[in-house]
Design a protein around this nucleic acid. Structure first.
Lengths: 173, 173
DNA sequence: GTCAGATAGTTGGTCGTCCTAGCATCTCGG
DNA sequence: CCGAGATGCTAGGACGACCAACTATCTGAC
């Protein structure tokens, strides 16, 4: 038994992930310790950032999932996209798109329109209220989260580079 | 309208996040563009990694949330911890702990024991079957995900450092 | 000693994600 | 031109995360 679980210094809280990495190595799992720490850090950071983002969006009555759909439409040439394209760009399951569009439509931010050429498909169209909300929500999100992500600009660049590499390796694009 | 949405080169797929960063900057949101890209990258990378982790754990019949609880108990001195401590270490809501422990208990991997000194509290105890499953699941997870996280060892170290900084800034530890 | 407030855990509800299964429609090979 | 397989979307269910509200118990100030 390693002594690390016992050496707790009050007032100097330990990082649980650094702790876990030490335990992993001490247990003989050395070649996986860094990966474990990287993955676990990713999970925690995601949780923290998502909470901040959701808090910024809450006053606007949308969640991050729905905000992403709005912005995709916002930046599309025609202000409308087929459901399938939305799912593809956001890398989420078709049912998640159905769910998000259901709620956006109920809120009067988008509407479903039949696809002109393919009767299977549905086109989602951004309404004026949706565009206004996208502007306002982005303003808040930029100010409270994106402009202050909790790391320096240089670190943000580094983070983007490493995660881009990870996504490319996974075939994300 | 920037021409970037039009310049699509078949066979050379664009990174949607790099694309979004360009649109953010082109729209005058320059001081938020890097943060947006960093946060969005984090969300996508989380999604990818979580899917890989869940796939590795599926044969063992546990999810990542439950696996985390098991490993916390696994590395605890007595093989048991109060519910509240579990929630604190994993940084999740008490109801999430209740949920995870419910399922672990139903699977015969842990059991609930009354706290000896505090009748409000419940201690979660790792059973033998739980310890065996933790060993086996960790073996698979180390081999299929943690040892091959999709980035180099040096990048993993960089990622850990940046995310640690981000977590520290958020008061995570 | 007692009572107000804090703490531990659960229940019930919302939301996002995925999966399986299903229907409608399109496409293409024979 | 017709039927098999692919594709687009939705319904229903599982799971994890959160919040609000509730009960039981502990703690500390008076």
């Amino acid at each position: 038994m390693s002594p690390v679980t016992l050496t707790f210094v009050p007032g100097l809280p330990l990082d649980p992930i650094a702790e876990a990495r030490r335990l992993w190595a001490a247990h003989g799992w050395r070649d996986a310790a860094d990966g474990m720490a990287a993955v676990t850090s990713l999970m925690r950071a995601h949780q923290i950032v998502l909470a901040r983002v959701e808090a910024a969006l809450k006053p606007h009555g949308v969640t991050f999932a729905r905000y992403e759909v709005l912005m995709l439409l916002y930046f599309s040439r025609k202000g409308s996209l087929p459901m399938s394209i939305i799912g593809e760009r956001l890398q989420v399951h078709p049912t998640s798109v159905t769910n998000a569009v259901d709620r956006l439509e109920a809120a009067g931010l988008v509407r479903r329109v039949p696809h002109p050429d393919d009767r299977r498909a549905t086109v989602v169209e951004l309404l004026d209220r949706g565009r206004e909300l996208a502007d306002a929500a982005t303003h808040d999100l930029n100010a409270t989260v994106f402009a202050e992500p909790g790391i320096s600009r240089r670190e943000a660049g580094t983070l983007i580079d490493v995660l881009t590499e990870m996504r490319r390796d996974a075939g994300d694009f």
